[in-house]
Amino acid sequence: MNKNNFSIGIIGGTGIMGKFFESVFLRYGIKTFVWSRKSEESLESFCTTKNIDIIIVSVSIDVTEKIIAEIGTYISDNQCICDVTSVKIGPMNAMQKIGKPYFGMHPMFAPPLSGKMDGQNVIFCSGKNSQKQEAFIKNIFEKDNSHILESTAQEHDEIMSIVQGLSHFFDITFVQTLRARGLNLEKIFASRSPAYALKLMLSGRTLYQDSELYGNIQIQNSQNIKTLETFFTEAQKLFTTIKNKDLNSFNQIFNAQTKFLGKYAKRSQDESDIIIDYLANRILSKKGVENNNYKFDARDMLLKVS
């Protein structure tokens, strides 16, 4: 397929992800236009006067469906809509309602420092009458060495309720617990093992992000409530076992989860060993720490993992 077959318009093109995708498309010679709330041009004019073939909606999750409904009133039957939000059921239903070609995608990453998609996952949800446009975008991403995954909207949101919803929820409540317990944070950091240092880093990383984005990821995914209800039920079982000092029940719970993970338990051990060894040698060692400041070369660590 000729790379110049389709032109692309990005709504929200001055945001973090919008800018990133603009740079990717331009790097491959794709005619690309961007629009934001600060643009002097109206959204209707942007969508209807530039011969844009694929309109990518890259805005906040909570306004995505509203934007889709708005542009659906004036785009042509030949224009294709695509959203890039972290939830899919709502946006996919909204795009289906307007009766134009559509598909959804979810980039599973923040914009890389390299500006390229090397090794990053992008989930695609096929829509209707958009096979050529979807294949066109996939082709660009594959040229940039990304991994393409396929999913339905329902399956996507169910999986994201674990990958994002539950994991972010744990990160937030983990730090909430540290704060509520009133223990000395400096001593906690000073006492950390390499494995615990990794947990602290991941929780700290989550809480260093934009609260509105992460709040919408929690609130807008309808599958999160069911997942969190399951989490509380299972957590209560474990809590009761610990409170009752029931080691036999604890062993049963623990071993059941190990069996469920199967080969991924050993794989997790092996791969995390590489990261933990790196942390021990480069961050927690006296050589790597000077007045609690250190230089962390993530590229070196990733090379070791790969």
Rank of each mutant, 00 (worst) to 15 (best):
240 T>S: 15
211 S>A: 15
33 F>A: 12
264 Y>Q: 09
88 K>A: 14
214 Y>K: 07
95 M>S: 12
29 G>R: 11
131 Q>K: 13
204 G>W: 00
228 L>W: 02
90 G>A: 10
209 Q>M: 14
133 Q>R: 01
235 A>P: 01
255 N>D: 14
146 S>D: 01
130 S>T: 05
247 L>I: 15
252 Q>P: 00
75 I>F: 02
75 I>N: 02
194 P>Y: 03
212 E>W: 15
135 A>K: 14
99 G>D: 04
176 Q>E: 13
17 M>Y: 05
97 K>H: 12
215 G>N: 08
62 D>C: 11
85 T>W: 02
244 N>P: 08
35 W>L: 05
173 T>C: 09
188 I>T: 03
56 I>W: 03
215 G>S: 13
14 T>G: 01
108 M>D: 12
294 Y>I: 03
82 C>S: 13
294 Y>T: 13
79 Q>A: 03
110 A>E: 11
215 G>I: 14
231 F>A: 08
111 P>M: 03
210 D>M: 07
74 Y>V: 01
76 S>E: 06
84 V>P: 08
183 L>H: 10
39 S>I: 04
25 F>M: 08
272 S>W: 04
270 D>F: 00
91 P>W: 06
124 F>T: 04
144 D>H: 01
299 R>I: 01
250 F>C: 10
251 N>K: 07
148 I>K: 00
50 K>V: 01
213 L>V: 15
100 K>G: 09
89 I>H: 02
230 T>D: 05
221 N>V: 00
268 S>C: 10
114 S>N: 08
86 S>P: 11
215 G>M: 10
218 Q>C: 04
269 Q>A: 15
189 F>N: 10
22 E>M: 08
85 T>V: 11
289 V>Y: 01
152 T>F: 07
106 H>C: 06
119 G>K: 00
240 T>C: 09
250 F>H: 08
128 K>T: 10
40 E>M: 08
201 M>H: 00
64 T>M: 09
191 S>R: 03
132 K>W: 06
300 D>K: 13
156 H>I: 06
2 N>P: 13
262 G>M: 05
303 L>K: 10
245 K>N: 12
178 L>R: 08
43 L>H: 06
142 E>S: 08
83 D>R: 00
245 K>W: 11
194 P>L: 14
22 E>N: 14
306 S>E: 04
81 I>Y: 01
290 E>M: 15
80 C>W: 04
277 D>M: 01
274 I>S: 03
298 A>E: 14
152 T>A: 03
76 S>M: 05
36 S>R: 00
241 T>P: 00
96 Q>W: 08
279 L>C: 10
180 A>M: 06
246 D>Y: 08
8 I>K: 01
